[in-house]
Design a protein around this nucleic acid. Structure first.
Lengths: 402, 402
DNA sequence: CCAATTTGTAAATATCCCGAACAAATCACC
DNA sequence: GGTGATTTGTTCGGGATATTTACAAATTGG
C-alpha cells in the first residue's frame, strides 16, 4: 500500500514541523520552534544542523532586546532549489524560473509553437535552458516544475485529456516527454486551477480557505478551493462552469457543445449579443467596453452580461459557500463588470458574497504554477504525504511584514 | 500550535497503519499487515499486543490451506466502544446506539419535543439512557456521538447557527449542553451532509470519492464529497442549493427569502404549480405523484419539476464534476423523477452524469451520523490528526464479502 | 557587578523500530 | 509416515531518535 518507512520515520515528522514553522514565519529562533512545536530543544538543534548541512536553511540574524541570551534565528534558503512555472496558452508560452520564496529570477514569453505537441515540448526545453543560463542557476538546482494548460487534466494520471488550441498535445504523453527532455518532473494542471492557487498564495484571497476564482475571457472557467484544498472533481472537470445552465436554453444544441453559459457570455457571445442590439459590425469585446458610456447597445450588452454573470456567481456561491469570489480573465477582471455585479448581487442575496478582482491579472496562472511547484518540492523533499495538509508555501512578503 | 508529541510519536504512526489495515479488511494476520505496511513483524506483534490488551482487537480465526504455518488473524472488536447517532428532525427525533462496525444494537424514534431547545436536550438524554439499558451497554463504553440537524452548522465552533423548525435551539449552546447532560462529546453536523456520509459509507456511492447527495423534500439541500472529504464551505452553508437561481426569477422577493429553486420545486412549490395547472385543491405532493398516470395536471407538474431538477443537477455537475449524484429525500427518491431526469439529462449533457436513488432512504442521516461518530472515535483513539486522510470507517459487510 | 532569564549544548536514558536468527506449525511430496 | 520447504511468530541485539536533566553562555536590568 504505502512505501516502507525505511529508517527516519519520526525524524521526518520533526523535520516537517520545523519546515512548516519556517514557512509560516520567515525567520525563527530554535528555542521558539521548540516551544511552538512541543519538540525538545535538542531535537530542533539537531534537525536544524542537518537542514543547514544540506543547504536548506541558514542563519538569518539575531533577536535581541528582551531579557536573556540573544537567539540566533534561522530561515529557509530561497536559493536551496529552483522551480519552473509554465503557462502554456494557445497563443503564448510563458515560463519563469523562481526560487523557493517564489522570487522570479528569470522569465520569458514566446508565441506558442504551432507545430504540435512535440514542438512545444522542444520549445519548453530550449526556453528552460536559456532561463537557467541567464540566471546562472545550475541544472542540478532545478528541482521541479508545474505547467498550466487549458483543458482537462486527469487527476489520477496527471496527463492532459482534452487540450483545445494546441493540436496533438492530448495524444502525446506530455508528462513523460517533459520528464525525458527536461530531466525533472513537470506536473500538469488546469490553468484556471493554477490561477486560483496563485490568488490564494499571492493574490486577493490570501487568508480564505474556501473561495472560487472565476475566469472570464475567450472561455469561462473556475478554480475552486475548499478548506484549503483544490477541488478537482472526479475527472478533473470541476469548475467547468461554461456548462452552467444559465443565460440560455440548456437544451440548445450549441449550448450542449460549448456550454450554455459560455455561449451566452464568452467573447463570441458578447459580440453576438452586441450585434443583435444594433452594435457596429466588426467590433471586439474590447470595443464594446470602450463604448460603454457612449452607446446604448454597448451599455445594454454589458448590463445583460453582468446580470447573467451575477446569476452564475449566485449558483456557485449557493453550492460552494465561498468566502470570496475572485473575478479574473481579460473580461472578468474589468472593474465595469464588478460594479454592476455588486449592484445586482445586492438585490438577489441577503448577505452578498464578497467579490474581488484578480490581483495578479494575466500572471495568475504563472504564479500559481510557481507556488504549486514550490509546494511539491517541499513535499517531496521533506517527506510530506499528500494528506499532510494544505499547500506548504512561504508566506508572501506582505504577510510577513504584517 | 499543536500539542506536544509526549512519547509515542512513531508508535502512533504504526498503530494508525495497523488500524487502517484492519478497517480495510475486517480480519487480517499479523504477517500480512507487516507485508502491506512495510513495518517489521515484531512491530506489528507489539502493536497488536497493546491493542488487544486495551480491548480494541481480538483474535478472530486462522488462515489455513496454503503452505506454511497457519496464521492467526486479528480483527477490531466491534464492541470495544459504542456510539450514538442522532437524527434531529423538526417532527421526529431518531436515535440509534451502534457498535464500531456500525451495527445498530438499539434504536428508538419519538416525536421531537415541541418545548424548545432545553427540552430536546433532556429528551435526548432520556432516550440515550433507555437505549443503553435496553442493549445492556455500560455508559463507559459509549465513546461519542454525532447529531444531524437541519440548518446551518458553523464549521469552526460546531454549533448550530440557524435551526429552522426547532425553536430556541440556535440560541442555546447545544453542544455544551449535550456534553454536560450526556457526559460525552456530541458533534453536530448538517443533516444532509450526514446523509451524504451515510451514502458514502453504506449506500450507493460507496466507491466514489467525489459525489453529491441531493435531498428533495419539504426543503432542498445537498451534501458534497470532494476527493473523499466533505465540503462544508466558509460558513457551513455549502450545498444550500435552495438558493440556486433556477426555476424562477432570482430577483423575486420570495426567492430571496426561501431560495429560488426551493420556491420552485419544494413541496409548497410543487403543490402550487399543480393547483395553477388546475389540479384538485387540498392535494399533497403525494397525491400529485399518485395521480401521475391519470391526470394531465399531475403529469405536467412532475414533468416541469423534473426539468428544473435536471438543470439543477446540470449546474451542480458543471461546478463539482461529481462521479455520481444521489437523489434522496421524500420527493427526490421517487423513481418517477429519476426516470424523467435521466431522459432530460440525455438531451443536455454529452456524457450524462450517473444518477442513483438513495439506498438508505430516510435512514441516511442516522447512518451517516453513526459512521461519522465511529470515524471520530477512531481518530481520537488512535491519534489520527484531521489531515490524516478521508473517513476511517469499517467497510460494509457487502464490501468485505466482495 | 550581580541576579534573573533565556539560549543552546552535553550526557544519560527511554522508546521504538529493524534485521537476523530461530522455534513452531503446516503443507507437499515421496 | 517421514522429510523438506514454507510461512508464522518470537527472541535478541543494534541503531536511530527524542526526552530529561544539568549546565555553560549570553544578555538585560538594576
Amino acid at each position: 500500500m504505502q512505501d516502507a518507512p525505511s529508517s527516519p520515520v519520526a525524524r521526518q515528522q520533526s523535520v516537517r514541523l520545523v519546515v512548516e514553522r519556517l514557512l509560516r514565519d520567515r525567520s525563527v529562533s530554535r528555542a521558539e520552534i521548540a516551544r511552538s512545536t512541543g519538540l525538545s530543544k535538542q531535537t530542533i538543534s539537531e534537525v536544524m544542523r542537518d537542514l543547514e548541512r544540506d543547504g536548506w536553511v541558514h542563519e538569518d540574524g539575531q533577536i535581541q532586546g528582551s531579557v536573556g541570551r540573544s537567539a540566533v534565528t534561522y530561515a529557509l534558503r530561497p536559493d536551496a532549489a529552483f522551480v519552473l512555472g509554465i503557462d502554456l496558452g494557445g497563443t503564448k508560452l510563458h515560463i519563469a524560473l523562481a526560487d523557493l520564496h517564489g522570487e522570479i529570477v528569470a522569465e520569458s514569453i514566446e508565441p506558442t509553437s504551432g507545430d504540435g505537441g512535440a514542438a512545444v515540448v522542444a520549445q519548453i526545453e530550449r526556453m528552460k535552458d536559456a532561463l537557467l543560463q541567464h540566471a546562472s542557476v545550475s541544472a542540478q538546482r532545478l528541482r521541479g516544475g508545474v505547467m498550466g494548460s487549458p483543458g482537462m487534466v486527469d487527476p489520477a494520471s496527471g496527463s492532459i485529456v482534452i487540450a483545445p488550441n494546441i493540436p496533438g498535445l492530448d495524444s502525446l504523453d506530455v508528462r513523460a516527454a517533459l520528464r525525458e527532455r527536461l530531466g525533472i518532473d513537470i506536473t500538469i494542471e488546469n490553468d484556471v486551477n493554477l490561477a486560483a492557487i496563485g490568488e490564494h498564495w499571492r493574490g486577493n484571497s490570501r487568508r480564505a480557505r474556501s473561495f472560487a476564482f472565476i475566469a472570464v475571457g475567450t472561455g469561462i472557467g473556475m478554480g475552486i478551493f475548499s478548506d484549503g484544498y483544490l477541488v478537482r472533481g472526479a475527472r478533473g472537470a470541476a469548475g467547468e462552469i461554461a456548462y452552467l445552465p444559465l443565460g440560455g436554453d440548456p437544451y440548445d444544441a450549441r449550448g450542449l457543445r460549448f456550454g450554455t453559459l459560455e455561449t451566452a457570455i464568452g467573447s463570441a457571445g458578447i459580440v453576438e449579443r452586441y450585434l443583435g442590439l444594433g452594435g457596429s459590425p466588426g467590433s471586439t469585446v474590447r470595443d464594446v467596453f470602450d463604448r460603454l458610456e457612449i452607446e446604448e447597445a454597448a451599455r445594454i450588452t454589458i448590463d445583460e452580461i453582468s446580470r447573467i454573470l451575477t446569476t452564475a456567481i449566485l449558483a456557485v456561491h449557493s453550492i460552494l459557500d465561498s468566502e470570496i469570489i475572485i473575478l479574473g480573465g481579460s473580461i472578468g477582471a474589468r472593474p465595469e463588470l464588478k460594479l454592476r455585479i455588486d449592484e445586482h448581487l445586492g438585490r438577489c442575496m441577503r448577505e452578498p458574497v464578497r467579490i474581488e478582482l484578480s490581483a495578479l491579472g494575466n500572471r495568475a496562472t504563472l504564479i500559481g504554477a510557481i507556488g504549486s511547484a514550490i509546494d511539491l518540492v517541499h513535499r517531496s523533499q521533506f517527506g510530506i504525504g499528500r494528506d499532510a495538509g494544505p499547500l506548504a508555501l512561504p508566506a508572501a512578503a506582505a504577510d510577513v511584514a504584517a
